[in-house]
Amino acid sequence: PDDEWKERLREAEEKNNWKLFEELARKAGVSEEKIEEWKRRWS
């Protein structure tokens, strides 16, 4: 299951679909801290 969400995150990233990325990350149990960090790195 871990690989599956990583794959989906990669797809979201490729499409630059931040909303989807964020949603998937939350569902995968990624901390808000980590998500914010990704946001900063991404923008």
Rank of each mutant, 00 (worst) to 15 (best):
P1H: 11
P1F: 14
P1L: 15
P1M: 13
P1I: 14
P1W: 14
P1K: 09
P1Y: 13
P1S: 12
D2W: 14
D2T: 12
D2V: 10
D2E: 10
D2Y: 13
D2P: 12
D2N: 10
D2R: 09
D2Q: 09
D3Y: 10
D3A: 12
D3V: 08
D3H: 09
D3I: 09
D3P: 10
D3T: 08
D3G: 09
D3W: 12
D3Q: 12
E4S: 09
E4Q: 11
E4G: 10
E4K: 09
E4F: 14
E4R: 09
E4D: 12
E4H: 11
W5H: 04
W5D: 04
W5R: 02
W5A: 03
W5T: 05
W5F: 06
W5E: 04
W5I: 06
W5V: 04
W5P: 03
W5L: 09
W5N: 04
K6A: 14
K6S: 12
K6I: 14
K6N: 11
K6D: 11
K6Y: 15
K6R: 13
K6G: 11
K6L: 15
E7P: 05
E7K: 11
E7L: 09
E7A: 11
E7G: 07
E7S: 09
E7H: 09
E7Y: 05
E7Q: 13
E7M: 09
R8S: 07
R8H: 09
R8A: 14
R8G: 06
R8V: 13
R8K: 12
R8Y: 11
R8I: 14
R8N: 06
R8L: 15
L9F: 13
L9G: 03
L9Y: 08
L9A: 08
L9P: 03
L9V: 05
L9C: 15
L9K: 03
R10C: 15
R10K: 13
R10L: 11
R10I: 08
R10W: 10
R10N: 06
R10S: 06
R10Y: 08
R10D: 05
R10H: 08
R10E: 06
E11N: 06
E11R: 07
E11G: 05
E11Y: 05
E11P: 03
E11V: 05
E11H: 07
E11L: 09
A12Q: 04
A12Y: 10
A12W: 08
A12S: 05
A12N: 04
A12I: 07
A12G: 03
A12H: 05
A12M: 08
A12E: 04
A12T: 03
E13M: 15
E13K: 15
E13H: 15
E13L: 15
E13Y: 15
E13W: 15
E14K: 13
E14H: 12
E14P: 04
E14N: 10
E14W: 10
E14Q: 12
E14I: 14
K15R: 10
K15I: 08
K15Y: 07
K15N: 14
K15F: 08
K15H: 11
K15Q: 14
K15C: 15
K15M: 14
N16M: 10
N16T: 04
N16Y: 07
N16V: 05
N16F: 10
N16Q: 11
N16L: 09
N16K: 13
N16S: 07
N16D: 08
N16H: 14
N17L: 13
N17S: 07
N17I: 08
N17R: 07
N17A: 07
N17Y: 07
N17G: 07
N17K: 06
N17M: 10
N17T: 05
W18P: 01
W18I: 03
W18V: 02
W18N: 00
W18L: 02
W18S: 00
W18E: 00
W18T: 01
K19W: 08
K19G: 08
K19L: 09
K19Y: 09
K19I: 09
K19R: 12
L20E: 13
L20N: 05
L20H: 09
L20I: 08
L20G: 06
L20D: 10
L20Y: 08
L20F: 09
L20A: 11
L20T: 06
L20R: 08
F21W: 12
F21D: 00
F21L: 06
F21Q: 01
F21K: 00
F21G: 00
F21I: 05
F21V: 06
E22H: 04
E22A: 08
E22N: 02
E22R: 03
E22F: 12
E22P: 00
E22M: 08
E22Q: 04
E22D: 04
E22Y: 13
E23D: 10
E23A: 10
E23G: 03
E23M: 10
E23T: 08
E23P: 00
L24M: 10
L24F: 12
L24R: 04
L24K: 03
L24P: 01
L24E: 07
L24C: 14
A25C: 13
A25H: 01
A25K: 00
A25V: 05
A25P: 00
A25N: 00
A25Y: 02
A25T: 01
A25M: 12
A25R: 00
A25I: 05
R26I: 05
R26P: 00
R26K: 05
R26Q: 03
R26E: 01
R26D: 00
R26G: 01
R26Y: 02
R26C: 05
R26F: 03
R26T: 02
K27V: 06
K27P: 00
K27G: 07
K27R: 13
K27L: 13
K27W: 12
K27I: 10
K27E: 11
K27D: 06
K27A: 15
K27S: 11
K27H: 08
K27N: 09
A28G: 05
A28S: 06
A28R: 06
A28I: 07
A28T: 02
A28E: 04
A28N: 06
A28Y: 12
A28D: 01
G29W: 00
G29F: 01
G29P: 00
G29E: 01
G29S: 01
G29H: 02
V30I: 14
V30H: 04
V30R: 01
V30D: 00
V30T: 02
V30N: 01
V30E: 01
V30M: 15
V30W: 15
S31W: 01
S31I: 02
S31K: 04
S31E: 04
S31F: 01
S31M: 03
S31R: 03
S31L: 03
S31Q: 04
S31P: 13
S31H: 03
E32R: 06
E32F: 04
E32A: 09
E32C: 14
E32D: 09
E32V: 05
E32W: 08
E32T: 05
E32L: 06
E32N: 07
E33N: 06
E33W: 06
E33R: 06
E33H: 06
E33S: 10
E33L: 04
E33Q: 09
E33M: 05
E33G: 05
K34I: 14
K34P: 00
K34G: 03
K34H: 06
K34T: 14
K34A: 11
K34N: 06
K34S: 06
K34M: 15
K34E: 13
I35R: 00
I35F: 02
I35H: 00
I35Q: 00
I35W: 02
I35Y: 02
I35E: 00
I35A: 00
E36Y: 06
E36N: 08
E36I: 06
E36M: 11
E36K: 07
E36D: 09
E36H: 05
E36T: 05
E36Q: 12
E36R: 09
E36L: 12
E36F: 06
E36W: 08
E37R: 03
E37M: 05
E37H: 03
E37D: 08
E37L: 03
E37F: 05
E37I: 03
E37A: 05
E37N: 03
E37T: 02
W38M: 10
W38A: 06
W38I: 08
W38Y: 11
W38K: 01
W38T: 02
W38Q: 01
W38P: 00
K39R: 14
K39E: 02
K39A: 04
K39Q: 03
K39C: 10
K39V: 04
K39W: 10
K39N: 02
K39T: 02
R40P: 01
R40F: 07
R40I: 07
R40W: 09
R40N: 10
R40Q: 12
R40C: 14
R40H: 08
R40A: 12
R41T: 08
R41M: 14
R41I: 13
R41G: 07
R41N: 11
R41Q: 14
R41W: 15
R41H: 11
R41A: 13
R41D: 06
R41F: 13
W42K: 02
W42N: 02
W42H: 03
W42P: 01
W42Y: 08
W42E: 01
W42D: 01
W42M: 05
W42T: 01
S43M: 15
S43T: 12
S43Y: 14
S43W: 15
S43H: 14
S43P: 09
S43C: 14
S43V: 11
S43A: 14
S43L: 15
S43N: 12
